[in-house]
Design a binder for these strands. Structure first.
Lengths: 351, 351
DNA sequence: TGGCATAACTTAAACGATTTTGACCGCCAG
DNA sequence: CTGGCGGTCAAAATCGTTTAAGTTATGCCA
């Protein structure tokens, strides 16, 4: 119980206990290499000296593994913590990691490689969540360490995805009733613009790296076509960030044009919440005067008024699966998770 | 651009480039120690070889620092990601850390020390969020590394808190109008029980390690006393976890007794959301028939219907301050952040 | 020219663990 | 008596860096 000033190391401890460093190391790592009595003595007395186990840096340098897993987030960490979907994903990941007794290091693919390339050498495995922005993916995928790509695909790396297009089509088909419907879309980041704006014709044909937004939009367009509804680019509002505030800006614009849209397809629940709020402030009744659908099925989607019709994509489970697959060699190269249409109040009566 | 099988190390790179290891190291760390021309050559060619900077384990072993900061969460990581307040706190922390070019490692104070004591040796500093459950705090506070205690106080460690009692008193005083009021409380974890239950007289007098819940309860009790309202233990519902589901159980019980409470004081917004939902399902009008207040001011508190009267405790800013203070030696030992009463719809008309 | 500071690198010793190899001790079988 | 064997423990090499100290080479001034 004595408090020491400088942290002890294993060598010092072994000296004080009168045994070799190997023996102390074995006491912590390989119980079968020494008598149980001695092991207990070492564990007990070293703790009393203030030694709390081998230094991670030294240990992982020597062993070549650290029991640390990194989740590399597409956006800044700060943003990811504010996103309910990312939080749920991390919830699932950490649930499994704690069972596997692994630690969680959070990195951002946004960071200049310089800033964190050292940190990238520590983890034993990497979970990339969302299409990475920098060149971190390139570097790390060369390292030979286990890696999994979630919500995007790249090269030969194992991946975990949902069918965004099919799910978006399904929810749109549900909410669009007739060909006279006036449909607007509030889109996740899709183009380079950093402002809320309407799309232009060229945007729809351009190459797009934002696969999630792109695929969901394709689903919407497909559904509209099937329903005989026109969805021109200027009825698609682009938001650079997935926040209710962005959606509010878009919704003010969309809901003040004449004739007003009868349906708004939102690429995320977070966006839908913003739209909902604007509708309320404009005294537009949902779902009577305006039907709204979201995507993701975050917890709040079932609590807000009216509750949101949306697509459940099991974000927590996605995190669990990603973490489990990371160290399983015998899992399929590209996994596709099921999604489910969740019908609630915001899309009007079920038919 | 050549893909190598085994990751290169600095020594190997230096050999291939025909310079010493020190020079390569300096190229990465100390630009002033070599000519700019050579430095550029080394940086360029080593990247082409597939070397992406010094190994973190080796570097931090040698330097004694890692540029990693750990946030030690009181509960499991998994739980913390589901808690909006913790997420906001982490958002603030990560915002500052990314500016300081530090990485974020998440640990749980719950984990048996055995599981992660190695990981504890890596970080340069520790942010303890919430009163820790295990003995990690003991161990780490002895290490001499920078440390800050958030939402609790312990020993001589610098801490960051709000005045929970005063804030709880203020919000209770606001919502309680007259001495005839019937008040119920939905409490955060306060006692050892793992079920939703009512408190008993003994619980109010017992020693309590859950300082947040304890202090908020003291504030409620104080306000009741000042208003001349009786708040007996059996009108205080205990929830073992901060989730809407727990609150729903409590609220069903509380709202089906006769006479029904006129005010429910919830120790968190998350709990209040559960109560709100039950009130709606029982067709009890809020705020007309029942007034509800929360605590924390999470984003959803301003989006739900009716919006929640609550206490704003600036969780994001709290995270920022914690991260900033960690490495500032000249900050006060115990900081107290301001809170603010936020009056919205759920507490009825303002007077 | 000599002396000396300075720039540009190199050498080599840590950093704190893990692990292979081998030493030592007692004991039993041959 | 001795060789071998199981059970323990110690010595030393090694992991990939950083950095203090040392070595040249060069420029500058008296």
């Amino acid at each position: 119980m004595s408090a020491s000033n400088k942290p002890l190391n294993l060598k010092e401890v072994s000296r004080l206990l009168g045994v070799s460093t190997a023996t102390v190391s074995n006491a912590f790592n390989r119980p079968d290499q020494l008598s149980e009595a001695l092991r207990q003595r070492i564990l007990k007395e070293s703790a009393e000296l203030g030694y709390h186990g081998p230094n991670l840096a030294a240990r992982s340098l020597r062993k070549g593994k650290s029991d640390v897993v990194a989740v590399v987030l597409a956006d800044t960490l700060s943003y990811s913590f504010s996103d309910p979907v990312a939080s749920q994903f991390l919830q699932g990941v950490s649930e499994v990691l704690s069972h596997k007794k692994k630690q969680l290091l959070l990195l951002s693919s946004r960071l200049a490689s310089k800033e964190q390339s050292s940190a990238e050498s520590l983890p034993d495995g990497f979970i990339f969540y969302g299409a990475p922005k920098g060149d971190a993916f390139e570097r790390i995928s060369r390292s030979g360490k286990p890696i999994i790509a979630v919500d995007f695909e790249q090269g030969k790396v194992p991946s975990l995805n949902i069918n965004n297009q099919a799910a978006a089509r399904a929810v749109a088909l549900h909410v669009i009733r007739e060909s006279e419907e006036r449909v607007a879309v509030v889109s996740l980041r899709l183009i380079a613009s950093d402002r809320v704006c309407r799309l232009e014709k060229a945007d729809l044909q351009a190459e797009c790296k934002e696969v999630i937004a792109y695929n969901r939009l394709q689903g919407y367009l497909q559904a509209c076509q099937e329903k005989g509804v026109d969805l021109p680019p200027h009825m698609i509002w682009h938001t650079p960030m997935n926040t209710p505030e962005m959606a509010e800006k878009a919704a003010y614009e969309a809901l003040t044009i004449t004739p007003r849209p009868t349906v708004i397809l939102c690429m995320s629940d977070v966006l839908a919440l913003g739209v909902l709020r604007v509708a309320q402030s404009l005294h537009i009744r949902v779902p009577e005067d305006l039907r709204i659908v979201g995507f993701d099925d975050i917890p709040e989607a079932n609590r807000c008024t009216p509750s949101l019709t949306t697509v459940c994509q099991q974000s927590i489970e996605k995190g669990r699966i990603a973490a489990r697959c990371l160290f399983d060699s015998d899992n399929p190269q590209a996994q596709l998770m099921e999604t489910r249409l969740v019908v609630r109040r915001s899309s009007g009566d079920t038919h």
